[in-house]
Write a protein that binds this DNA or RNA. Structure first.
Lengths: 145, 145
DNA sequence: TGAATTCCGAGTTATTCACTCATGTTTGCC
DNA sequence: GGCAAACATGAGTGAATAACTCGGAATTCA
């Protein structure tokens, strides 16, 4: 019931890209150093994000990655679904007929409620929200210097 | 991001106990056969449920397990928390200071919202709800015989 | 041209999951 | 009393998955 590092690192990386959205393409190296993500591993995580159309890449020297849309138009759900592959907590919702009969299982109702509820939550948080809420809650620490 | 079999089997088992709540103690063997759970494994899963005070056991011949409370007073959340050990999707919420600074992480806000939202969902579903909703949605299948 | 960077696929290691097994203890029933 | 049906517990195991690593090719800028 834990999120894998894929999801966690993914959110961190996307948040990082959101913060540096105006600074031109950000290299894997820069992101991984700032966020403390193993460089070679981050490379693997960003591929699905690109496939999902959440980031765009520019190759070659001075290249890197940029958000494909504005931070307010990318949700935490977009990122997690790209990396974790669907937020259903149980396989029997994705596969057809994974456990015999479709309606013959009372638990199914529970899993569906969980899935829908989870999706609603993560789709309600954008990268922009993360930035603004973080500043609102923790800004005093930066100001006291 | 998947629920483990512990959680899934646990819900099945508890739902089973709720259905047979008036039939005296149910043995591991009976539950495992009805729900398709490996007998020796179920034994391991029911231990934490007992520790959490959700079921009571009677030893010896003709013994077994019974719900400790009425089905309407046991939530899916109770069961999942007992078996999955806390529904936070990320360790940094449980441990103190798992990632350095507590407030220095914008993702933390996300994880907290997820945890709280998830808990609200699972605590809103009781075993009784499972029974009644299942009957409401799937009863016609039984009636057409 | 050469350095910086993305891209791609395969390989590796450590951990966790999903069980099994062996053994002991308690209790009802004949 | 004694046997069989249950719970109780802790250790062990095989397979799967997670979390990386590595090597090398393709691309682009200066």
């Amino acid at each position: 019931m834990k999120l894998s590092t894929r999801g966690r690192y993914g959110i961190h990386a996307m948040y990082d890209l959101a913060k540096y959205a105006d600074g031109g393409p950000q290299s894997i190296k820069a992101i991984s150093e700032r966020e403390g993500i193993p460089e070679a591993y981050l490379e693997q995580l960003i591929a699905p994000l690109k496939r999902a159309g959440l980031v765009t890449s520019t190759r070659g020297a001075q290249g890197g990655y940029t958000l494909a849309r504005a931070p307010e138009e990318i949700t935490v759900g977009d990122v997690l679904r790209a990396l974790e592959g669907g937020l259903s907590l149980v396989d029997c919702l994705d596969e057809e007929d994974a456990c015999g009969k479709s309606c013959a299982c009372a638990s199914r109702i529970v899993w569906m409620k969980l899935r829908d509820g989870l999706n609603a939550i993560v789709d309600g948080i954008t990268l922009r929200d993360m930035i603004t809420e973080y500043e609102r809650q923790c800004a005093q620490e930066d100001k006291t210097t």
